[in-house]
Design a protein around this nucleic acid. Structure first.
Length: 288
DNA sequence: TTTCCTGTTAGTGT
DNA sequence: AACACTAACAGGAA
């Protein structure tokens, strides 16, 4: 599911809603999604207040006054929905068919806040997870994943990207963009779109990219992700933001999910192939 | 009905 | 080491 723009959208909205609120109860309906012992998880969440909601790669990080940080990964279909009274503030993968009622059969973990709302972790496919770690261990915990740089970090510069690519000469550019140890937060939708926006075929080997093309890729990464965040992400099939609304980036998608349709730029028919096990769309006219 | 596809990423095997 | 493939799970589309 959610890639960097969607997770960042959820982070911002949850941060504004949850900060300083106190967790008064935790209900774990599907224990396997919580990567801690139930008693440990409940003990260190209950009574704690939210300090801040952060993000690294596609992870939501909720810092608590108990000295612990709650790590949440939504994977393909996870959703974080916050409801306070009649106002719903959600994020993740929307569910139709009357399942907008909360909790529903996909609500696997539920946090109650002191007279201040309820946070639901919903996940149709149960791929996502929650894990509570002592905040001093957070850096080490994230370090184990070996994440690459945050693409929107000011410290992520063209020179850095160039040197990173030098070490991956034989890789294919599109799967490489999705490699979380290379660069963090880009998934199938945005890797596909970045290639289009840079006018580069997703199947190009890194070693064949000219300096000009590398520059185009670099700026396509920055621009594509920033615009998607500005639109509060993409709702392909299902994503909804922290206010229960679909993201507004879908109309800006150039090739993802548009195979067989006409290229918005040149009118050619969009092609779709399988690369490294993932659907990959491109315009053979615009991308070289 | 059956088969294939899906926004992710561990884990296994070559 | 790099790459291919599968599994985890559920639902929608064809």
């Amino acid at each position: 599911m959610p890639e960097l723009p969607e997770v960042e959208t959820i982070r911002r909205q949850l941060n504004s809603q949850l900060t300083n609120k106190k967790i008064t109860g935790v209900e774990i309906r599907v224990p396997k999604l919580v990567r801690n012992q139930r008693s440990y998880f409940i003990r260190h969440c209950t009574g704690a207040r939210v300090i801040k909601v952060n993000r690294r790669a596609k992870l939501v990080l909720i810092g608590l006054t108990s000295g612990y940080t709650l790590i949440i990964h939504l994977k393909m279909t996870g959703q974080l929905v916050f409801r306070h009274g009649l106002k719903t503030i959600a994020g993740g993968h929307p569910i139709g068919g009357g399942l907008d009622v909360l909790p529903n059969k996909f609500s696997h973990v539920i946090f109650s806040f002191d007279h201040a709302g309820t946070l639901f972790f919903n996940d149709i496919r149960k791929f996502g997870f929650l894990k509570l770690v002592p905040t001093p261990s957070l850096a080490a915990e994230l370090g184990r994943e070996g994440y690459g740089p945050e693409p929107l970090d000011r410290a992520f510069l063209l020179t850095k990207f160039q040197s990173m690519l030098q070490r991956k000469a034989s890789a294919l550019i599109k799967p490489l963009l999705m490699d979380q140890t290379f660069i963090a937060g880009i998934g199938n939708i945005y890797a596909t779109e970045v290639c289009f926006n840079a006018r580069i075929l997703p199947s190009r080997h890194v070693k064949t990219l000219s300096p000009k093309e590398i520059k185009a890729l670099f700026f396509a990464i920055k621009k594509t992700l920033a615009q998607a965040i500005a639109k509060r992400g993409s709702s392909v099939d299902t994503f909804i933001d922290a206010y229960g609304e679909p993201g507004k980036y879908v109309p800006l998608l150039k090739v993802y999910g548009r195979d067989g349709q006409k290229c918005r730029r040149c009118g050619a028919t969009i092609t779709k192939v399988n690369m490294a096990g993932r659907g990959t769309a491109y315009c053979r006219q615009c991308q070289k």
